[in-house]
């Protein structure tokens, strides 16, 4: 029944020496990092279980406060005020028993994507006219970059720098607030409070499906790597590996979408109808009222300062 070559079985003991990998491969590094972050922080709810400041607040209060702050931040134009808000998130992280350095690192992972692609060009006078801050190059009149006419000299502008710094600080503050909310709140409580503040069932259902979907996607990726490692004999060069990862993305999307569908079925089967029901009772404590009033007051004052309606 089995083909000929399968009949041959090596019985010689192994004589070579085991070599030690010099560096982790591209895919493995990326995936391990992402996975351990999500597992640690969101699935195991390590941070949400700690007893800190934000953990002790009612999830509805946190949700509303975060929303108010994010809206506030988008209205603020002064980089100093934004810096204060960003530093405030670090203080909140500290009092919520989240390692501040770790938190800062996680937040700034997301920022280069925005900063690099969207705003860095705004530094230069090519995109935003302004006063010279750092001269870069003198091109002379009539130079072109493709069809675009370039100014006679290129420099980093003062206005551009302020613009970029403000933008990055705004992103940093918003991302920090969102991550704080997710880290300090158990996921099912979060979805329950979305319902509590009257977000329609369909949206909550969709968000919770997406949330679950992201984890499944990550798990599927990890499984794929494990499965491949068990079959792979030599390690691939980074380029190859990147191509392999790329080639699998489409497949993984389909696969995890299918699994997420089945998870949803399993929930429906046990009576889930889009309304999250939990043991936990939402009770507003004294500190919750204090928190929400403080947040609102802070937001209004900072927005007014930022718009120079009041000055210190």
């Amino acid at each position: 029944m089995i083909p000929d070559w399968m009949n041959r079985t090596e019985t010689e003991p192994y004589h070579g020496a085991a070599s030690v990998a010099k560096k982790k491969s591209f895919g493995k590094k990326t995936i391990d990092g992402a996975l351990s972050f999500f597992r640690e922080s969101l699935i195991s709810e390590t941070f949400a279980k700690r007893k800190g400041l934000l953990q002790s607040l009612d999830p509805r209060v946190k949700l509303i406060s975060m929303f108010v702050l994010v809206v506030g931040v988008t209205f603020m134009t002064s980089p100093w005020v934004l810096l204060v808000i960003y530093l405030l998130t670090l203080v909140l992280a500290y009092f919520s028993k989240i390692e501040v350095l770790w938190f800062v690192k996680r937040v700034w992972v997301f920022i280069p994507i925005f900063a690099g692609v969207i705003v860095i060009p705004m530094l230069f006078n090519v995109f935003l006219a302004g006063n010279v801050l750092v001269p870069i190059a003198t091109l002379g009149n009539g130079s072109h970059l493709g069809p675009i006419a370039l100014p006679s000299s290129i420099y980093i502008t003062q206005q551009g720098t302020i613009y970029v710094v403000t933008f990055i600080l705004r992103v940093a503050a918003c991302v920090s607030l969102a991550i704080l909310l997710f880290l300090t709140t158990k996921q099912d409580l979060l979805f329950k409070s979305l319902r509590a503040i009257r977000v329609p069932k369909v949206y909550v259902l969709t968000i919770s499906m997406c949330y679950r979907y992201i984890f499944l996607l990550l798990d599927t990726i990890a499984d794929l790597f494990t499965a491949r490692r068990s079959r792979q004999i030599t390690s691939l060069p980074t380029r190859e590996e990147q191509r392999w990862v790329g080639g699998r993305v489409g497949y993984m999307l389909v696969k995890s979408l299918d699994t997420s569908d089945k998870v949803h079925q399993a929930m429906i089967s046990r009576g889930f109808d889009g309304d999250v029901k939990l043991m936990h009772d939402n009770v507003m404590h004294h500190r919750d009222y204090v928190a929400i009033v403080t947040v609102l007051a802070c937001c209004v004052i900072l927005a007014l300062i930022s718009r120079s309606i009041i000055s210190l």
Partner: peptide, 22 residues
């Protein structure tokens, strides 16, 4: 496949899920 059926963060929550929903 047990993996699709386990979506809560602890064993306790998992077993309590059904009766709570009902």
């Amino acid at each position: 496949n047990p993996d699709v059926q386990l979506f809560s963060s602890t064993v306790f929550d998992e077993i309590a899920f059904g009766p709570l929903q009902l």
